[in-house]
Structure formats: structure tokens, C-alpha cells
Design a protein around this nucleic acid. Sequence first.
DNA 1: TTGTACGCGTTATCAG
DNA 2: CTGATAACGCGTACAA
Lengths: 350, 350
Amino acid sequence: MPEHKTMEKVTIKDIAKKCGVAVSTVSRAMNNHPDINPETKAMIDRVMKECNYVPNNSARNLKRSDAKAIAVLVKGIGNTFFSQLVSGLEKECQKRGYSCILQNVEEQDNELDTALHIAKEKKLRGLVFLGGNFTHPKEKLDQLEVPFVLSTICTAGRETEGCAAVSVDDFKESYKMTDYLISLGHKDIAIITAPREDESIGKLRLLGYQKALEDHGIPYREELVSFMDMHEDRYSFQSGYRLTGKLLENTKFTALYATSDSLAIGACRALKERGISVPRDCSVAGFDGMDTGEYYIPSITTIRQPVEQIAKATAELLFDMIKGKEKAKQLIFDGELLKRESTAQNNTEN
Amino acid sequence: MPEHKTMEKVTIKDIAKKCGVAVSTVSRAMNNHPDINPETKAMIDRVMKECNYVPNNSARNLKRSDAKAIAVLVKGIGNTFFSQLVSGLEKECQKRGYSCILQNVEEQDNELDTALHIAKEKKLRGLVFLGGNFTHPKEKLDQLEVPFVLSTICTAGRETEGCAAVSVDDFKESYKMTDYLISLGHKDIAIITAPREDESIGKLRLLGYQKALEDHGIPYREELVSFMDMHEDRYSFQSGYRLTGKLLENTKFTALYATSDSLAIGACRALKERGISVPRDCSVAGFDGMDTGEYYIPSITTIRQPVEQIAKATAELLFDMIKGKEKAKQLIFDGELLKRESTAQNNTEN
DNA sequence: TTGTACGCGTTATCAG
DNA sequence: CTGATAACGCGTACAA
């Protein structure tokens, strides 16, 4: 009667024993080493399959000097924008025969600590950071001994100075959008933006908005600015919805610039429920260029970030740095102003 | 002059040496073992910080028998629906002092192989699978020696029989939605569904649709059925948009049942661009209960899957199985029919 | 081409 | 409370 116990843990030794060879031979077989008799290899492979042998990765990582792998640390998976970037990065890695490990970082966690751990554990050759404020002391950054690049993370700031980074110029793009709204005849332009404390892209987008107003001689008015809640889901439909509601109670405006597409969509819904038609009574603009905005009704005017280009450039820069062919540098891409249905000429009498 | 070289790799031994203690003492210090002099511990902790010591996880995993961690394997990160589930699961893990590892699985990869590897590597106590068809031979499933539960994966099928699973009854919920559309007076109800080859939730939803028609004496017509492309991004806005366009060329209908909210949104856009008003000229319904559908204009009638409940129940079941308090079993939750703006009474003359 | 033996960085089990 | 020391599973010189 054939016993069918769950064979506790089958290791390389067990395989070796069963095959009547040494462990090193088995090791060579599974790592496709050149110095091995094809027949021996075939036989070992067969036995490994039969025994359902799964090599222990911890032991491998411990020994291996080097792993031909990078990791992408994402703060805020679920952000559609990042998902696209991740796919792009994975594709680029595949092309180069690298494996790409995706690591989620909780909002409250420190991405650098996570990075330090995973880099050691997996013997990574490089890292990509997506999202987060990334305010880390330089000395701690230095502990990361492999190259890394920030993607879509504020580069205009203090700590990240000298870090490799690729993104759009959030200040400039935000200026562009505000300028466009002004060119449509809008003067009372409300904005939904990151929490006051934000020191990242959120701040830059707000600054771009302010500068555009200033350049057109339009006074900046605090009551038109709505800051997201620190503790709420940022850049969410719900925030957009809620904050628009609050704005409508306190002030009047003919255009609303939401600093992300999801915020813009939430805003549209809030406006609609109050009988305010977009874009007839109020224009709405977003930021990012997410798919959702394209299919929304009305489709959302936005700044499209060139995700594919950013992903590609990020990967290229990282791999060049890994090869030592390139130093850390900052790459800025142009966003594209997508004029769609949610914005229109201001037709309010003054 | 204080040299500031990047100290290659600082290990537990280096710390021990610097502290003038044995490695085992250092180990105890960092693992908060009870048997250690507080002063010694404090001193060791200080030195570790000074040296920027990061313990090597591979070595730890290699030794550790046990890890108080589970992993969630997601096929198709970026699917908003999964993101919500993941957050829920993470919360439940935290409550119990478990850590929760998120693993992305590429569409073309085999989730079971990934599971086998990671379970061994990290000495996991349990697993959750999200997404995918999950057609694996039972013998291979048995190799997974820790408990696991499928969440939101078809349980009505052959291979997954006997697996722990929690989800809605896709057949029943789909029936419910179709029934609702019929009750609104619709007879020509088109459907957008998974590829013909699909053997998972997609198939069940189609079957529910067919049964509802049958029960109401409405003949099932192939020309009203649009199958997603096997190679296209499934359940995407784009698919919904494209397939609706094709349907409109070939046939007439007064209601369109898209088997996911994103498909429904794509469909709405396609209809709008052809001057067909939703819901006046055509009703549209989705499935899942995603946020986007709620904020869409018109908001999307849908079946809401009780994500929080599912997440909670999944975690509970898994942990009970880990404790040996529970055997694998299947939990079915009720979906909720959310009647929103995208559906209306059929007002077409016959 | 194959086998032997050592060590990777930790934790756990003993003695002390 | 602390210190040796044996594993953990695998890769790899080196010898055969």
C-alpha cells in the first residue's frame, strides 16, 4: 500500500541521495551549469519533479553574491497611476533578463528601512521608489549601497538632492493647467490640493497654481484653496467629493482644479448633485492622465504624465547606473495638456 | 580625520566584537529575548544603531522554524477590487500580530509555484489567493503544507473542490442582476462577459444570466453575447468600450449587462459617443461595486460585493485553520443589488 | 565530469 | 544572565 504522507521537507540532500549523486551535482543541475553530463542532469531533473522539490530561496540568497534582480517599492499600491508604472518597469526588467520584485510599503512605514532590508535579503542590484514623500537624511540614504532611482517623486526638494529621479516637473505642469483655465476666461479658480504639511508633489502643484495666477494679475485667495485631510485617503474620489462640497458652501468659482483625476471625478459628482453642470456652469480639471478620466462623462481635462516614457527612462537610468555607465541624475519629462470635455470657456457674466 | 567609508557588510559578528559580547547575546538583544540584562541590551542596541546594522533576513528565515506571517498572492494588482481586499486583510493581520506579505503574480505566471516558493522561503503559516483561475491539480495543491484560502475565486469548480474559499455566489448574483433588468421591462439584454475559455467567475456570471432569461421565457441569443478577448486586458474600461461598439454594430438591445463595473463604464462611454443616452435609451449594469461606479455619471447600477466582510471572513477562516480550530470550508456572502442611475424602465415601444 | 567540505548570517540548545 | 557551538539549505572552490 503506497503511503502518501506529506513528505516533510525535501532538500537538496534528499534529491542527491535518491539520485545517488552528490549535492553539488544536483546544485549544478538546477542552476544549469555547463560542467554536467546531460544524462545526469536529465535524470536529476526528473527526480526533482517527482519529489516536488522546491529549492529554499533563503539559503540561496544567503550564498549568492549577486541576484540579477531589482525591487520596486511602492507606497500606495492601488494607486492606478503606479500600477501602470509598475507594469512598464516589469517589462523593461524582463527585456534585460532581470527579475523584478514588487514591494508594497504601508503608508505609515518607512520605505527606506524596507529598502535596506530587502536589498540585503535579496542581494538586489538596484531599487526603484514609487510614491511617498521621501524625506530621508542623506547619511541613511548612503547605507543603501546599490543604485536607486525615484520615480514620480518630488525632486525639487532638499533631501532628495543628488538622488537619481525621473518625473514630470509638477510645478511647471500645474502652471500650465492653471494658465489654460485662465485662458478660458476663468478668474475664480478653486483648487483641491495636498494637506498643508505636504512637502512633495502636492506642494509643487499648489505653487504652480499660485504662480500662474500671479503672472496673470489674479489675486491668490485662500478661501478658494481646499487642502486634503492628512488622515483621509488622499487623492481619492471621496476626498474630491467631500472637499468640493465644502468649497461650494463657502465660496463661488467658475473653475475647479483638482490636483488628481480621482479628485476631479469626485468633484464632478459633487457638482452634479447640486445641479451644477460641468463644464457649462463650472469647469473641472484633473492631473495625471488616468484611464478613468478618459471614460468619464464628461471626460476629464488633465495633464497626462507620460507613464510609458517615465517607466522606460527609469529603468534605463537604473540599469545604466548598475553598469556604472551613468551617475545619478534627474530626468524631467513633459506632461501633456489634454483638453477634454470637462472644461469650457467661462460664460458667467461678471 | 574620521574615515567615512561605506562599511561593506556589518554582520552580527561585527556587532558582537564591537560590544565585547558573544553573537548569541546580540541575537537575544535584537529579538527581545527575556534572558538578558537590560543594560547589556541597551548598550548593544546603541551600537547596532551606530553601525547601521541591518540583520540579514535570508539567514533568519533559514533558521527560524516559524514566522508569524502570512502572504497574500494577488493575480492582477491594479484591480481596484483587490486593493480593497488587500487593505482589509492587512488590517486583520495587524490585529493578530501577524505580518502580511503582499506578492504580485504576473498574469502568465503560475500562482501555485510562486506560493510554494514563498511559503518555504518565508516559513509562512498561511496564504491567501486573490484572482486567477486557479486550476491546479490536487496533488500539487497538497504540496502546500500550510493552510490557504481562496478569496473571490470561483468555488463552484472541479479542482478547487475542498479548498477553503470565501466569495459571493457569482451565479446567483448574476441571476439577480439579470432578473432585475428583466423586471424593468427589458427583453433584449446584451452581455459582456469573460472569454469563452473562461472557467471561473466569468463563466458563472454568464450562466446566471442565461438561467434568468430562461426562467422568464426569454430566448438566449448568441448575438447579444460579447466575449472579452483572451489576450486583451480583461475587465478594463477599454474592453468595455470596444466590445460595446461591436455589439452596437451587429444588434439591438435596450439593456447592457457588463460583468464588471469597469466594463460598464467603458460601455457607457461608447454609448454616449453614439448619442445613445444612458439610461433613457439603454440601461447599463455592472458588477463588483467599485468606488468608480458610484462617482460615475450616471452612477452605475451594480452588484456590490461585500469586500470588508469577505476580507474579514477570509482572515478569520485562515487563522482558525492555522490554529487547527477549523477545517477548509466554503463561505458564501450575499452581494447587494445597488440600483443606481444607469438603469431605468424600458420605454421602447415593442 | 563528479564528490568533499566549508561557510554564508542567524537562531537555538546547551553548558557555565 | 552569557558564551560556545551546532544546525538551517545551498553554492562553490578544490580535489579526485
